[in-house]
Design a protein around this nucleic acid. Structure first.
Lengths: 348, 348
DNA sequence: CTGAAAGCGCTTACAG
DNA sequence: CTGAAAGCGCTTACAG
């Protein structure tokens, strides 16, 4: 039933080595053309399929990359991840690599990662993907764990983690240049009371949003009112109720910047429920430039984060480290502000 | 540098077998508690990580499921696939299985699948996912290929493929019951001129749409006007221009049923461009009940296809086949019509 | 251009 | 409760 290399070799009267050579590279010159033909048809007849793991084990090369997502939820709903995966897939498949997802169980990110790493010796490399459940400390711990194990890896969807222990890592960092800053844009439109809807307290993206906010306000010499910082837990419904609360308490604001488009959806709902027109009364900006942003009414202005490119570039760096042993490098990718109709100059 | 089972065994002065036993099941009673403690700390000290492929090879069990998508494009943009993956992930991770994606190259679906199968001996099972690029014949060929190789597999996102060669297969089929039929609903609202926007000619979902259409019309004794069948190639822009053409030729219709929500987006645009109000002048129904359906204006009525459940159930069937050798089975899952504001009774 | 042999790092009967 | 040995199905020097 199970047919192996040996069976093919016996059938054609050659050594296993010859048959192996042929399957590793059918164009090899180390096997005569005549033998090749006989191997081919014998393999066909017998229904021979090389065993992936046997090959990986003896070749010490698996052509498999493990994607590590230390997050215990259905993560294929994340548009960030899916775009990145498209980029990852495009380079991996083009170069004959598989990719695999390792179980993530529990709720402690570094612990999940450690579990994943323990069950993954043999993969050629790793891609770790930052998640909303990670604090900056978690992420740093995760990266240090990877360094300790000493496997090639690349880091996506995390804030700049620098070079822990003085060792550079393969990382793609998404940065917001001046001209892509939602806050700076809103200030330029005359808004000064801007509601910031972050994800989760301590989450790196939330912190980065607060930092951007504070810097832009400082530049203009404007004071920051921290009562305008709210967290929407990345959920439409949470963002909605937070914003409703702000409105109902009589807090004054003329613009909202939500750190995901999903939360911007919540803003649309809350504002509609209280009869506040977008952008007539309140301007709204989202982040991620999701597929649906342009179909909302009004179409949503959003900060585009190029995750496809991040996936592609991170994977290319990883393969370089694996195949040519090149040193890891950090790449910065610029976000972009996509202007649509949800923003206007501040109403007087 | 590379530390193996042997190193741990030597360090603690036990046999490899004892250490292996411990790692396979730390609760085993075949190793004394005292030995366990020493193994644990030696492994920790040495940084031992079991080798996945060595284990898989000798245990003849990999705990890996390969997802086969014979489609050569960035498929993580498909909401169908992503929902199914969430379902697949939920059961696989819960039971300690990894899942892996195999390169798909070329444009001929059965050929891609054959290539994927050739490079995948060793996986415990397979999930094949139907794609828009497959005709019904392709899909049947794919399934027969799987049967020929004789590996456990499950089929998702394909029309009912029956039991080829009289052998039942693990398949989850999404069916549209009477009460979920968009066409029947529109007829009930008085519409008789209904534009059907399919995906690609010959594609199974397009054929199924036409079949549903014809059956519903036949039931009412109404004639079918095939000039109302158009294909939008699953693309918003293609759907849009097809619908613009229909309008500009003066063809009369009061409703549109698009076989994906994305194409319904195109319908929204085309109708807006020609000043035809939804649903005042034309009713629109989409399919898939995508995330964004309820944020359109008007919110889109859509046929929900429960892909998460399909992924979950298909994977459970696959694991049953693998682990308890139970016979494959076909499961039917009912679509559901989610009514929103894009439909109304036919205008007079 | 080809073959015999060792080895990749584990697990699995089997014997004790 | 534990050990010695064979084997999973390949690849890789090495020798010819």
């Amino acid at each position: 039933m199970k047919v192996g290399l040996r069976d093919v070799a016996e059938r054609v009267g050659l050594s296993k080595a010859a048959v192996s050579l042929y399957f590793r590279d059918p164009k090899t010159s180390r096997v005569s053309e005549e033998s090749k033909g006989r191997i081919r048809s014998a393999a066909e007849d017998l229904g021979y399929r090389p065993h992936v793991f046997a090959r990986s084990l003896s070749a010490r090369k698996s052509h498999m990359i493990a994607i590590l997502i230390p997050f215990d939820l259905p993560y294929f709903r994340s548009t960030y991840l899916n775009e990145a995966l498209c980029g990852i897939q495009s380079v991996l498949f083009g170069r004959g690599y598989n990719f695999v997802f390792i179980p993530s169980q529990g709720n402690n990110s570094p612990a999940i990662l450690r579990g994943q790493l323990e069950r993954s010796r043999g993969y050629d490399g790793f891609i770790i993907f930052g998640t909303r459940a990670c604090t900056m400390d978690d992420m740093r711990a995760n990266v240090e764990e990877m360094q300790k194990v000493g496997v090639p890896f690349a880091v996506l969807n995390m804030p700049d983690i620098g070079s822990p222990g003085g060792r550079e890592i393969n990382q793609v960092v998404n940065v917001t240049p001046r001209e892509a800053s939602a806050i700076r844009y809103l200030l330029g439109q005359g808004h000064e009371r801007i509601l910031l809807v972050g994800g989760r307290a301590q989450a790196p993206d939330t912190d980065a949003g607060i930092r951007e906010y504070s810097e832009c306000f400082a530049e203009r010499g404007l004071p920051v009112d921290e009562t305008l910082f709210r967290n929407g837990d990345y959920e439409e419904m949470v963002a909605r109720s937070e914003i409703l609360q702000v409105i109902d308490r009589g807090v004054d604001f003329t613009a909202v910047y939500c750190l995901t488009d999903t939360m911007a959806l919540g803003a649309y709902e809350a504002l509609a429920e209280r009869g506040l027109a977008i952008p007539g009364r309140v301007s709204v900006i989202g982040k991620n430039d999701s597929f649906f942003a342009r179909f909302l009414s009004p179409p949503l202005t959003s900060v585009r984060v190029p995750m496809f490119e991040a996936g592609r570039i991170g994977t290319e760096g990883l393969l370089r480290s694996i195949e040519s042993g090149e040193p890891p490098r950090r790449v910065f990718l610029r976000n972009e502000l996509i202007l649509r109709l949800s923003t206007a100059v501040r109403p007087r």
